[in-house]
């Protein structure tokens, strides 16, 4: 827990960069389009945020409980470093079916890493959620692009989570060989 708190504080600069970029963009909108437009965007985004909060809270709680309830040995066996291609495939299927947004997915992926999942399966999981997640494709992508485009895009993306997982395993082996740490949590 102490480690986690330190991690959050040490990357405060990233929040600062985003905050200043956002502020600059907000001022630009205000100057270009006036106060009404700037306020309209703010109201819309705050509504979006309020809609996100319940899912975000659920994601944090799921991650906290999963870390405590899932036995390490099971995670290590199913998606650990010895899990091979099958582990990548399992991670890919999990990523494609798990509901929720990035606020659910990253805590869960982090929890799996703590429990002994290997970096390849964690990358395959995140890649699959991003590219194959039905939730996202259905809610956000389909209205913009239509079924034919989305269908082809998903078909083309099918091998990518496995490929990303294999690349991550290679990268982690390379880093460890060069004397780097194999700690990814």
């Amino acid at each position: 827990m102490a480690e986690r708190r330190r991690r959050i504080r040490s990357f405060e600069w990233s929040t600062a960069i985003i905050a200043s970029l956002s502020l600059a963009a907000g001022i630009a909108v205000y100057v270009r389009d006036g106060a009404d437009k700037a306020l309209a965007i703010l109201t819309k985004d705050l509504q979006l945020l309020v809609g996100m909060l319940p899912k975000m809270a659920a994601g944090c709680l799921i991650a906290a409980f999963v870390t405590r309830l899932l036995p390490r040995e099971v995670v290590a066996r199913v998606v650990g470093s010895e899990s091979g291609l099958l582990g990548l495939f399992v991670a890919m299927m999990m990523g494609a079916v798990l509901p929720g947004g990035p606020l659910t997915i990253y805590p869960v992926a982090a929890a799996f890493l703590v429990l002994g999942a290997d970096v390849g399966t964690a990358v395959a999981f995140i890649t699959a959620w991003n590219l194959l997640g039905y939730n996202r494709a259905l809610i956000w992508e389909l209205p913009f692009f239509g079924p034919e485009f989305v269908g082809w895009r998903i078909l083309i993306a099918l091998p990518l989570p496995i490929l990303g997982g294999l690349l991550a395993r290679m990268a982690s082996r390379f880093i460890v060989k060069r004397g780097g740490s194999d700690q990814w949590t």
Binding site: T15, I18, A19, L21, S22, A25, G26, A28, V29, D33, K37, A38, I41, L42, K44, D45, L46, L48, L49, M52, M56, L103
Partner: peptide
């Protein structure tokens, strides 16, 4: 997350 959500609205604009 609040900074992220509000910020991306302005950046997109």
């Amino acid at each position: 997350v609040m900074i992220g959500v509000v910020g991306s609205g302005y950046l997109a604009a």
